[in-house]
Amino acid sequence: MATKQGRERRFQRQFDALERLVPALRGPMATLRRDRWVLVRIPLALVLILGGVFSFLPVLGVWMLPLGLLLLAVDLPILRGPISALIIRGRRKGRRLVLRWRHWRRKS
């Protein structure tokens, strides 16, 4: 069983990994993670989650759901473990898909 500090470090490492993956998000994500942004972060997270639920509508997408959950996990420690695990799985799955695509492109 992971300790509370271990889960927190894992969660922070996943944020750092996402910032490296998408450098354009580094500034906004760092700003939103600050404590004084809690009044913006929670409503924004709820709007993103709601938008992800209605992803069948134009403009809204499934991408909004994990982003909203990630922002909500900043303020709700109980979500940090599951969200960290989902980010790790998503990054691994994305890496595998990129490798498959590259392999497929070389064969063509």
Rank of each mutant, 00 (worst) to 15 (best):
G51T: 06
W104D: 12
R100T: 13
D16M: 06
L21I: 01
V38F: 08
L69K: 00
L86F: 07
P43A: 00
D35H: 05
L18M: 11
R102P: 00
I42T: 15
A2D: 11
V74Y: 04
A30N: 14
R20N: 12
A2Y: 11
L71K: 03
R80F: 01
L25W: 08
L50S: 12
R10C: 07
R80K: 14
P82D: 09
F11C: 02
K107R: 10
I83Y: 07
L18F: 08
L69H: 01
E8N: 07
L65A: 15
R33I: 00
A30I: 00
V62S: 14
V59C: 09
L44Q: 05
V38C: 04
G52P: 08
F54I: 05
G81R: 10
L44A: 11
H103V: 01
A73S: 15
L86D: 02
G68F: 02
V40E: 05
T3I: 03
G61A: 08
F56E: 04
R20E: 13
A17W: 01
R13M: 13
P28K: 09
K107E: 04
R34L: 07
R100P: 01
I42D: 08
L50C: 13
P43D: 03
L97K: 09
V62C: 10
G81K: 07
F56V: 13
V40K: 03
V62L: 15
I88D: 08
T3V: 04
P82N: 10
L46K: 02
P77N: 12
A73N: 07
I42W: 12
S108T: 09
R105A: 05
L97V: 08
P82W: 09
L21Y: 04
L86N: 03
D75L: 08
G61I: 01
